[in-house]
Simulated scan of single mutants.
Amino acid sequence: MTIGVHLEEFHGLPVLDFPDAGSHDELPDPASVAWRVSCPTYCDPEDERWGPAFERFLKTVDTSRVRALVVGGWEDAYDTSSAPAVAAIAGASDRLTALEAVFLGDMTFEDCEISWIVQSDVTPLLAAYPGLREFGVRGGNHLAFPSLVHPGLETLVVESGGLGAEVVRGIAGSELPALERIELWLGTDEYGGDSSPADLAPLLSGEGFPALRSLGLCNSVIEDLLAAAVASAPVVARLDRLDLSMGVLTDEGAAALLDGQPLTHLRELDLEHHYLSEAMAERLTAALAPHGVRVVLDDPQEPEDDGDGDVWRYVSTGE
């Protein structure tokens, strides 16, 4: 699967593309939408670049009322990092005084494949906005996330085809006392996803995340190992939702979940895009559904046999 549509909603608000230069469209109340500032990733000479578009946004919109900002594409995103955008947004903190949410890299496969997006150290954004409640980023290439302390962040989503171990350790080692939801797309080693369950240890212990209620460890080639890790992870006892979707989850990982700590307190267990047998899927449903747990088992996959004795299983989003 590839990402084929831009965000339509973010932070509970409809996403609105900031109009092109020369537009005479009437603008809505700045607090009523999530503003998407973007430029073509494959720029023609006459195309406005992201930096000037953002400067025009700051001059055009009442930035004291902007609650949510979506960074779409920037010029040559497959070759040029997000660092200038990160610096520009961080530098506008005295103007974006109501900002609660940022998403960095809202690009489809037509703009730039997820594993081609060149990211950067994104933590200056969080440092500049201690009141930020939601942060999302797409693309793991050159992404950096050194450990930090942030008092207000409630939602953190990192979408990638491969998330490096150093990034995972930085996130897991952060102190995010208000964080209620985290979703990490860990990906495959082919695209830089070289983390292991050990890298997630501080997160799974729950010590730095006392408010966590929704844990997503998604899109991973090591989904069975992750399932085994969460089966005994202290943080699971306080979760409402556990998400192990989009990855290579087999009967081995599902059995570990069933043999581990009780999951009957969950509101939802999301295993969409899985490699479970029908029998195992029925076991999971029989064990949890009577307790009111919604078990999501949509999009079952079949392994591919290449005819030479090798069997292949794929995560949902890689390229």
Rank of each mutant, 00 (worst) to 15 (best):
L212C: 12
P210W: 14
T188K: 01
L215Q: 06
S205C: 08
R169K: 13
V235R: 05
G140N: 01
A198R: 06
L225W: 02
L153Y: 05
G193C: 07
D189E: 15
V158K: 03
L186K: 03
V157K: 03
L143Y: 11
S214F: 02
E190K: 13
L163D: 02
S196L: 13
V149E: 14
H142Y: 14
R138Y: 14
G193A: 10
A165Q: 15
S147C: 10
G206E: 06
E190T: 14
S220W: 11
V157L: 09
L204R: 02
L204N: 04
H142L: 14
S195Q: 11
I182S: 11
A144Y: 03
E190C: 08
P177G: 15
T155I: 10
G192I: 14
A231F: 10
P177C: 13
A227L: 07
S220P: 08
G216I: 03
L200S: 04
V149S: 14
W185E: 05
R213A: 14
L225C: 12
G173E: 00
P210R: 12
E175N: 09
N219Y: 02
E223K: 09
H142F: 14
L148A: 10
A144P: 01
S214W: 09
D189M: 14
A233G: 08
L186P: 02
N141W: 05
G206K: 08
L200H: 07
A233W: 01
S160W: 04
A198M: 09
G136I: 06
P197Q: 08
C218G: 02
L204Y: 10
V149K: 10
A227I: 01
L225M: 12
P210C: 12
N219D: 14
A233Q: 05
H142K: 15
A229D: 04
G136Q: 03
V157M: 02
G192Y: 02
A231E: 12
E223W: 01
G193T: 12
L204H: 03
A198G: 08
E159M: 08
G152Y: 01
Y191I: 04
D194V: 07
V168Y: 00
G136W: 07
A201W: 02
F135A: 03
L186S: 07
G136Y: 06
E166H: 07
L184Q: 04
L226F: 15
L217H: 05
C218R: 13
L186Q: 04
N141P: 04
G164H: 13
I222D: 05
I182A: 11
G216L: 05
P151A: 13
P146N: 12
G208M: 06
V149C: 07
P234M: 09
G206H: 08
E190N: 14
A201M: 05
D224Q: 06
E190R: 13
I171T: 00
L226C: 08
F209T: 10
L226G: 04
P146M: 00
G136T: 07
V167W: 01
L143T: 00
A231S: 15
G140W: 01
V158R: 02
A198D: 15
A201E: 10
A172I: 08
V157G: 03
E190M: 12
V168A: 00
S160K: 10
P146T: 00
E207H: 11
A211W: 13
